[in-house]
Design a binder for these strands. Structure first.
Lengths: 256, 256
DNA sequence: AAGTGGTCTAGACCACTGT
DNA sequence: CAGTGGTCTAGACCACTTC
């Protein structure tokens, strides 16, 4: 899945033969260099980066300094190492999504899959608040995708997803099959890699439409999860709101 | 806040002059050694640990190995370093608590303080489910503390907290002033350090009692936060349920 | 066999903290 | 000033992967 042949990939790191000191420690400079290559899309998730010794030579620093920089990025989960093979750029890990905590409250049953089926797809001028969250002009053409998530035959949540039409033209077309993991399609068909996302969790009373879709009474508590999804260059490509049955959601955390 | 004079503290690390190799890398052995000292209470939060060079000599390994072990524990936030002073055991960081995300949805106003006032305190045989969560025999004597949390004069959440009476004898006494941060009192008065906690977040419809206390209608959504609190030796010392207004709660996260 | 990351060592020099 | 952690280097040896 490398974007470039070996030589080119190494060239990404030779642009600045000697790193300038600006108060930053050397390993920090190396870190930031790699971070930038990822954020600008010159390295994409899954890519193999040059070996530690190659990097050390290319950047004119000692191997230990490169190792420290990479170790820090590994702790941040931006990279991962595989002994004997090399160091790779991490794929975005939606296992960390709060979404994942739907349907877990039950019998400690891990890895329950939520099936999603599209219930609406269309292209339309975006509502004001959605456009604002997307950072596009009000009234811009958006693609709207609505999906119902179920476990077995029990509906459990509804997803309301909005994309700028310029990013995913034609996605509203019914002929395109939408997989459960939408972002794989977006990468394949439109070459748009999803790099990171922000999620906000709250709870609310179910609105009439959502309540009907997941088979609960209006006003019953639902968990509300708002997601903002980013591609290269910190561009927002999706805003999504998921509303799910509160009785099928529980989020667990450790302190510290 | 060190528990022991300098010599004693260093002695904690000389018990095994040479570390045995059991498939584990050396730095891992050092890590586990420090972790054990903390989990057993021989090192407590706030303690200064011996310097890296002292540790290296005491354990018979190179300074680099000690540094790597400590660096890992710092990344895990179990220790923190202060250049020129030394390395300390971290205090438990309730800034990471989900509790902290109450009342933040508003105007991005950080550091809003939630005042807590005790509304009930008594000693009584524990209900079955509480005893089970605490891991004590059913019907054991427990201390029950109920507190109302408010911002200004607006009530926002209720806390229901249960402790084994053997751990905090007399805490039900009305003469003892309970500070907002209860665990400080527990450490001072009973010498029980709080080392870690687990929290689980869900949402539910408000029960009659809670609804009345925080001034909402019964059945309105509330956020439910269950906490299990641990002291040394992984002993559970408290189970707590906090119910708060859903419209004053929002939890934000980043992926990855 | 060659290349990768993983472990471990040894030492130099710097920046910060206390006295 | 002495002691602490912070940075950076250099090299040896090991374990894993691929050819």
């Amino acid at each position: 899945m490398e974007t470039a042949p070996e030589a080119d990939r190494l060239n990404l790191f030779t642009s600045t033969p000697l790193e300038a000191i600006k108060g930053k420690p050397l390993y920090r400079v190396v870190e930031d260099h790699i971070r930038t290559l990822i954020n600008t899309g010159r390295l994409v998730p899954g890519d193999l980066i040059p070996s530690e010794s190659q990097l050390a030579k290319a950047l004119g620093v000692s191997p230990g300094t490169v190792k420290k920089a990479i170790t820090n990025l590994v702790w941040e989960r931006l990279l991962f190492r595989h002994q004997g093979k090399g160091t790779y750029v991490s794929r975005i890990d939606f296992e960390k999504s709060l979404f994942r905590f739907f349907s877990y409250g039950d019998a400690e049953g891990r890895s329950i899959r939520i099936q999603k089926t599209a219930t609406a797809r269309r292209r339309q001028p975006g509502p004001k608040d959605i456009c604002r969250r997307l950072g596009v002009a009000e009234g811009s053409e958006l693609v709207y995708i609505e999906r119902l998530g179920s476990i077995g035959d029990q509906p459990i949540l509804v997803e309301y997803s909005w994309w700028p039409a310029t990013v995913v033209p034609g996605l509203e077309n019914e002929n395109i099959h939408i997989p459960d993991f939408l972002y794989a399609l977006v990468l394949d068909q439109y070459g748009v890699p999803i790099l990171r996302a922000q999620e906000t969790l709250t709870a609310d009373a179910a609105d009439a439409k959502t309540a009907k879709m997941i088979g609960i009474a209006e006003g019953t508590p639902v968990v509300v999860l708002k997601r903002t999804t980013y591609t290269t260059g910190d561009r927002i490509v999706e805003v999504r709101t998921t509303k799910g049955r509160a009785d099928r959601f529980s989020y667990k955390t450790e302190i510290p």
